[in-house]
Design a protein around this nucleic acid. Structure first.
Lengths: 297, 297
DNA sequence: GCGCTCCATACCTCCAGAGATATCAGGTCA
DNA sequence: TGACCTGATATCTCTGGAGGTATGGAGCGC
């Protein structure tokens, strides 16, 4: 890459003159007087070392050398204006790419609305959406493998990562339709003490897992886990088969399954928080934009 | 085409720094001190409106905006250096295109050597070679359809067209091998008075035609034309069949045909000139180069 | 011949940018 | 803690280019 020899303003003048083939008109299009244009062209020709235009009285025409230079000059100019526009779009956060990790349970609740409004506000932004459980999201944020995390029960005091609560959901009891408690409108957690539980594995999201088991111990028992499943969809299916019951964020009511009943619980104060997470020091304007779209806190 | 916003020197510095990712090294590669480089980058970032590099202590890295701008800057710079080189090559006559018209009878004599030496001197020049008789060559020169003509018996006083003699050939008599005169080493033109002639049509090259008939009238007779043919090759073939005799430039001896004899003529002073023709005012350096390669005069 | 068009030339102003040196500030490492 | 690396900042000089106005000079049409 050698040092550039031809100044851009001269090349711009060259391209315009090549289009107009008339010094007066070209100068007008450039918004300058005619003599400066003559000078620009002359300087450019001096640098190139050869005439770029033939000036026979009455007609200006490109020389062979000019014809050779013209496409290169055109490409360079358009490349630069396009590149500049793209860089500005990305720099200002009107374009670019944002990598989002989300917990599976949010695929049916907060995620769709969020994506819809963000996409209509920033249509030029490419969104990379990947399902991840909580712990990998935190790791991916540290590794800069994702820019945004959407998770439940944000861990306290994670260094360099910031959280903002987006949604606070009550819990519901997930019961087989045939379960005796399904007859009640509301279920006391303590009433679940004798039923086996179907839960997500703790590793998938320690925060939520501990929250659920915490609710049980608060109610005076330790839940007996009959089965683990990695998706809420599966949890519901297993509950339907009568394998056990579960406690889940209210959002999973959207999973409609015939043999499964969802019932509010008492005490109703038990809630689970959905949070958005990001690197505190991330300069990416898209992160700020996304935070503005989710609102919350 | 809008006015360019980003000066090339800054883009150059940007590209080099993007490659080195180290201000000191990049400055060294640019042959300047480090502070000016910091300034250049800063100015560029100010224009773009966004940071192009992230300077965390210990490591310099491109930002998303910088990654967006980099390929455009690279392309623009290489386009310009390439375009400049091409324009200079064409301007100086080291490259480009030259259109040459030539008389068919020269395809076997002056043309091959001329093309060979020109091509080895200017390998980047594309040669457009087309066969044309004399009159169309002159017209094509005026119309700028060709840049160089190679013809016989250049017309005197053609305005704006210059000629230079490349070769002066004697005439030879073209005889059927069985012709009585084929027994002589040299033939007097007058001896051909009773034989019918095979000639090129006058329109193909009035100069040469008039020259040949002039030789005959000088020898005291008017040639009787038995047949016209548009190529010397055909002339020879017709002579071989015994249809007549001919007078031709010595160069056609290269056409080896069993039944045809070539004999020198008396007086031996009769010669035909091959000339190169060009537009007197042609600024194309390739024309000058070609004239230099043919030499002559 | 006169005026018009069109480009070139001459000459001036002005400023942005490229370059320098000197110095400072934040990290890293021994 | 001090030496060192790395990049930023401050300040100065100087030049080249971009722009202007005024004018010259070659063709062309009437």
């Amino acid at each position: 890459m050698e040092r550039p020899e031809l100044p851009l303003p001269q090349l711009h003048a060259f391209v315009v003159l090549a289009e107009e083939l008339h010094f007066g008109h070209a100068a007008a299009r450039l918004g300058i007087a005619q003599p400066p244009l003559s000078q620009q062209i002359r300087r450019l020709e001096d640098r190139v070392g050869h005439a770029l235009f033939s000036r026979e009285p009455g007609r200006v025409a490109l020389t062979a050398a000019g014809r050779e230079l013209l496409p290169a000059a055109r490409r360079a100019l358009t490349d630069l204006t396009d590149g500049l526009a793209a860089a500005r779009a990305v720099g200002s956060g009107r374009a670019g790419r944002l990598r989002i990790g989300f917990a599976a349970s949010l695929a049916l609740t907060v995620l769709p609305g969020l994506l819809r409004t963000f996409r209509q506000r920033f249509p030029a932004v490419h969104l990379d959406i990947r399902e991840m459980t909580t712990a990998p999201q935190i790791a991916a944020l540290h590794d800069k493998a994702i820019d945004i995390g959407l998770l439940r029960e944000p861990p306290a005091d994670e260094p360099e990562i910031a959280f903002r609560t987006v949604l606070s959901e009550p819990f519901v009891a997930v019961l087989p339709a045939a379960h005796p408690l399904a007859a009640q409108r509301t279920v006391h957690i303590a009433q679940l003490a004798d039923s086996p539980f179907v839960l997500l594995p703790r590793a998938a999201g320690p925060g939520l897992y501990d929250r659920i088991t915490g609710l049980c111990t608060d109610a005076g028992f330790t839940p007996r886990t009959a089965q683990h499943a990695v998706e809420w969809q599966t949890v519901c299916a297993l509950v339907e088969t009568g394998l056990g019951v579960s406690l889940a964020p209210a959002g999973i009511r959207r999973i409609r399954l015939k043999g499964v009943a969802f019932r509010g619980i008492a005490p109703g104060t038990a809630r689970t928080r959905v949070a958005v997470a990001w690197r505190e020091a991330d300069p990416n304007p898209l992160v700020a934009h996304l935070l503005a779209t989710v609102g919350g806190e």
